[in-house]
Design a protein around this nucleic acid. Structure first.
Length: 436
DNA sequence: AGCTGCGGGGGGA
DNA sequence: TCCCCCCGCAGCT
């Protein structure tokens, strides 16, 4: 929605209210999905927008009965914090996503802070005149209208994907046999070059501490130590959360597809070269970054609707809790995030490996520079004040993960086949590769 | 188990 | 009348 050159139609489009009897239908340009809508925002999404169809938000929004079946109303639940306001290692705080279900939330609040064993505390949202911020969704014609009322007065919780991943990790922890068996014996997963063994330097606070206590041979390493394994987790969450057709449950696939082989296969089949820091160790990151926007972006990308892919930027579907991407794009995910990244760091140290190749064939876009290892806050990043997930970070300058050069091609179909995704339906493929 | 949407109902302004 | 909240239910993942 560009505010220039208003005519009467544009004014109509801008001045609507969710309660209007008639909403504008002559919308020329729909908005990109906003994962962290705040303040008194209004957006018009295409009715084709999958995220909008699902009324998604990374804020923990619960359904509220407004006795109006035409307008879906949701109110914010706030954020769950440690009652002792403890700091995890490296000064990170704990911001959990409140469970949406009432009973699950009560159960959640009975749990203890895994960092200090203190009580957990729910900080309610009071951003709308003392009441929770409310979001309204209304489907009308070819559009989905969104309106937010109030301004969140609390930190961002972990995203839905992160919360789901955390639960998934707990499942792995409690029922490790199905996943871990296939990983046993993997030297890559057990011992990575330059990897330190400190759990405390894992990128998450309690998500990792609680969830990643994998069985013996793991020595505390997450399945997603390697980008390849990570992508499996990511796929899983994609399909689980957003119902992408074709990918049914990749957690099951980890028991049939040995991630070690996957990693080796990728090493062999790809011309990518990895530097000494090759596999990104969990210890290489210490920032609990809020990459929710990236998740939204990657979700959108996977759903075939993303301005970045439109612009031939490669897709970096950043993982859930486990991938230590240390940058946070704008709160407004309509802004291309490449504009907010450092233009050219001294050494092109990039960290997030691609999961989905760019449909245009530009598998790696070197404008995306992420340094997991030595987090230096640039003006392009959110300050910790702006973004509660970003905190001071003790750098580990020794490990690097090099992004392959543009010449590196990733055989997408081969990859999909190897991942067991060769049965993906057309919709899935269309979503992933809208240009194919 | 948890998320989501729906709807009945109570209570306050 | 409007708004907020609680609750239960059903469908889904």
């Amino acid at each position: 929605m560009e505010p220039d050159d208003f005519d009467s139609e544009d004014k109509e489009i801008l001045s609507w209210d969710i309660n209007d009897v008639k909403l504008p239908q002559n919308v020329k340009k729909t908005d990109w999905f906003q994962e962290w809508p705040d303040s008194y925002a209004k957006h018009i999404y295409s009715s084709e927008d999958k995220n909008a169809q699902r009324h998604l938000s990374s804020w923990a929004m619960r359904n509220t009965n407004n006795h109006n079946s035409r307008i879906l109303k949701k109110s914010c639940l706030g954020v769950v914090v440690c009652g002792r306001d403890c700091l995890a290692e490296e000064g990170r705080k704990i911001y959990l996503r409140p469970a949406i279900c009432d009973k699950a939330r009560q159960k959640q609040q009975r749990k203890r802070c895994p960092n200090c064993d203190g009580p957990l505390k729910l900080i309610p949202c009071r951003g709308h005149g003392g009441f929770p911020v409310t979001n309204f969704w209304r489907h009308d014609g070819r559009f989905i209208f969104f309106q937010s009322k109030g301004e969140h007065d609390h930190p961002k919780p972990e995203t839905k994907l992160e919360a789901e991943a955390r639960r998934a990790m707990k499942k792995v922890n409690t029922a490790p046999s199905s996943v871990s068996l296939s990983l046993k014996g993997s030297t890559e997963t057990r011992s990575l070059p330059g990897e330190t063994q400190s759990q405390g330097s894992l990128p998450l606070t309690w998500s990792f501490q609680e969830g990643v206590q994998l069985p013996g041979s793991y020595s505390g390493h997450l399945i997603a130590n390697t980008p390849q394994q990570n992508s499996l987790n990511d796929c899983f969450s994609f399909s689980k959360s957003y119902g992408l057709g074709g990918i049914t449950d990749l957690t099951d696939q980890t028991s049939t597809v040995d991630p070690t082989k996957l990693y080796e296969k990728r090493k062999l089949s790809s011309s990518r070269t990895y530097s000494s820091g090759d596999l990104l160790p969990p210890s290489a990151s210490g920032v609990y970054s809020d990459h929710g926007d990236l998740q939204a972006w990657s979700k959108n990308a996977a759903l075939g609707r993303n301005h970045l892919t439109d612009n031939c930027y490669s897709n970096y579907p950043f993982p859930l809790t486990s991938w230590p991407c240390s940058f946070s794009p704008s709160q407004n995910s309509s802004e291309p995030f490449y504009q907010q990244l450092p233009l050219e760091p001294p050494a092109a140290k990039t960290g997030c490996p691609p999961l989905w190749p760019n449909p245009a064939g530009n598998l790696y876009e070197e404008k995306v520079h992420v340094d997991f290892n030595s987090y230096v806050q640039s003006p392009a990043y959110h300050s910790p004040q702006e973004d509660p997930f970003l905190f001071t970070y003790a750098s580990h300058p020794h490990q690097q993960y090099s992004l392959p050069s543009k010449s590196s091609k990733w055989d997408f179909e081969e990859e999909m086949t190897y991942l067991g995704l060769d049965h993906c339906n057309n919709d899935m493929l269309l979503n992933l590769c809208p240009l194919r």
